[in-house]
Amino acid sequence: MSEATLLDFAGVVRAFGRLRVLGGVGGRVAPGEVLAVGGPNGSGKSTLLKCLAGLLAPDRGRIDYREDGESLDTAARRHRVGFLSPDLALYQELSVAENIGFFCRLRGLPAARGEELRARVGLPAERLCGALSSGMRQRLRWAFALLHRPRLLLLDEPLEHFDAAGVALAAALLAEHLDAGGLAVVANPSHLELPRVAGRIDLAL
């Protein structure tokens, strides 16, 4: 029963040309659990999360992700996960509501879901994304990651640019996600109080 939904990876290797960033990383997350990924800048935290999200192909290693007993291939995994990263941006020419509405339509979700989440992260609907502060942009990234109610959340620097209120919001959203039986992998969680940490990977340079 507990194995029905599970992220399990082992021996993940990824090099960029001559630079070997990940040298055989493994881990395991079950529902309601958090896997914390630590390490200094450049140790490969973002690379690992991108590999897990299916945005980068690992050179070697196995990534196995199952939802309700169904094993997902890379394309399905990429589509299902909730991914948050400083490298991810939304359209500056569009307003907050238009951005969220666009991704709702791509994912086939009702507009009400986007509206609900926008209110939850506390963003002004009509403001153009180009005119958002960096903290507000981070809130929009949270909304993008949670939009389709993913079972697996991959959070890279989830607190970047956040003030105290932002940190509290992030903690609440993550707790809700875990209470609902979600899984999470969090990179550099130093300032976030993580509930139910199942394991920790410390990457070295």
Partner: peptide, 13 residues
């Protein structure tokens, strides 16, 4: 260039 491609890769068919 604007890094919106990542969001599209995740969300779009």
């Amino acid at each position: 260039e604007k890094h919106t491609a990542t969001a599209l890769r995740l969300a779009a068919t």
